[in-house]
Design a protein around this nucleic acid. Structure first.
Lengths: 144, 144
DNA sequence: ATGATAATAAAAATTATTTTCAAAATCAAG
DNA sequence: CTTGATTTTGAAAATAATTTTTATTATCAT
């Protein structure tokens, strides 16, 4: 999905809920879309302030919550106490094998699993916007 | 793995690290093993205090961290700001749907996916000991 | 343009988690 | 079994992330 489309999605969501568009929100979404990894609030705020120095951090929190609600961003917690934000992937998606001994991370992709996920979600009346699949264990080097 | 074995695992870990066994830790592990879902600290503390009313919450935090370190428990964050604790699954495993709008969590289980995971891991020469599968999106109440 | 409503920045408040500290418990060695 | 060094504990204080409050400003349908 292109930036323009995401912005449109946000506008639509805002309008539905009777909320208003603001330059702050636009600035934040612009900056967020230039990031490539899972960014935490502090880093994001720093980047946002390079564009618009007066933005308060509560606004960034609020906006990221909005983006999450309308399915544009995704919150992730890796257990370090901070929430990190990530783009919702456009189409394809990769999952991870993580070696608990050496920390090696291998990526994989499997259409069958993606398909089964959709099936399960349908049964639960749940609309999936994104997923996380992580396999933990021992890589070939670290044996079992 | 049986409760007795888990306790032994903890004792072994404590001894290795030069730490000591205490009744509090035993009480907490006992109570934790009677829980069935992902429990947060508050709920766990409440249950623990029914057995041993004087236990402080810092002790529960400290003990759960220990259990996590020695692979008996697992910390999970679903984005509601609280850490929840779960048993390391013995064999079967349940996965989660998480609503990004209202925070509702639904569990599911799917043998086909588990099987596909094993297949993928085999191809990568990877031995899976545990996994996490989380579907994020909108629950039936929150629509799409 | 106006007026009702929502959004903002900054500060204060809240919440989960961690740390501190003095007292109590553990345990290896004598 | 006692000792003594060390760890653990509970309670309270401290910390860190996030949320709420409040007065002011901005938005937008009319």
């Amino acid at each position: 999905m292109k930036l323009a489309d995401k912005k449109e999605l946000l506008q639509k969501y805002l309008h539905e809920k009777g909320l208003k568009s603001t330059t702050q929100r636009d600035d934040i979404i612009d900056v967020f879309f230039k990031t490539s990894t899972h960014i935490n609030l502090e880093e994001l705020l720093k980047k946002v302030r390079r564009k618009n120095p007066k933005i308060g951090y509560a606004t960034v929190y609020r906006t990221m919550k909005l983006l999450t609600e309308c399915g544009i961003a995704m919150e992730r917690q890796f257990g370090d106490g901070q929430t990190r934000y990530e783009h919702i992937p456009d189409d394809s998606h990769h999952d991870h094998c993580i070696c608990v001994r050496c920390g090696r991370i291998m990526e994989f992709e499997n259409q069958k699993i993606e398909h089964l996920q959709k099936e399960i979600a349908d049964k639960l009346n749940f609309t999936v916007t994104n997923h996380k699949l992580e396999l933990y264990g021992f890589c070939s080097k670290c044996g079992s």
